[in-house]
Amino acid sequence: MLSTWMEEINWENMWIATWETVYMSLIAVAATFLLGTILGVLLYLTDKGNMWENKPVHTVTAAIVNIFRSIPFIILIILLIPFTTFLIGTMLGPSAALPALIIGAAPFYARLVEIGLREVDKGVIEASQAMGATQWQIIQKVLLPEALPSLISGITVTGITLVSYTAMAGVVGGGGLGNLAYQEGFQRSNNDVVFVATVLILVIVFILQWVGDIWTRQIDKR
């Protein structure tokens, strides 16, 4: 029974789709980490009472972050079609999903970064200033290392969201397991494909969560 069940699945397509999902997720996580961290640091530093206190910059950044965070992902993909076509040259395939994935996830992660940075003890920043540290030294040697466990647990949460976004992007042509489940599974009424694709997505999510948890625990010396 199991063998007949397996026969319905094109395993080669399944593996290609899995790697496409892993590829999209990894690139998107890396880029989101970078962009989100920069945005989060900017949000934090320009906030009231902090090093670069600047109300206009803070308000504008916060507004952009909140707007992009609030747009449903599926709508964001459609809104970004002209931008993606301009950037990648096509709307199809895993690379075409990246701009939407990153723009969708970075603002969410930026908020998590900002929250993590706010938890850094103000006294430690003051001590660094008293030692004659430059602003760049404070960001690089104090703020980011002290907030690192929050940054890592935050990117884990964001990464899991990104995996589910890749599935959504797949439905509108982005490739990966979501695309496979929709094209070969749903449209051809092949439930086995939908089932296996779902399991594989879950496995990716669990591995991500597991690595993130171990890493966070290892660097958290509080």
């Binding site: 006294g123 001590a127 030692m131 004659g132 040697k141 002290e146 690192l148 660097i219 010396k221």
Partner: peptide
Amino acid sequence: MVFQHFNLLWSRTVAENIAFPLEIA
């Protein structure tokens, strides 16, 4: 400067905390 609540970097060891102002310099 020495503070009431120590203000050490918890992500650094004792040696790394003491080395911090030397890195700054």
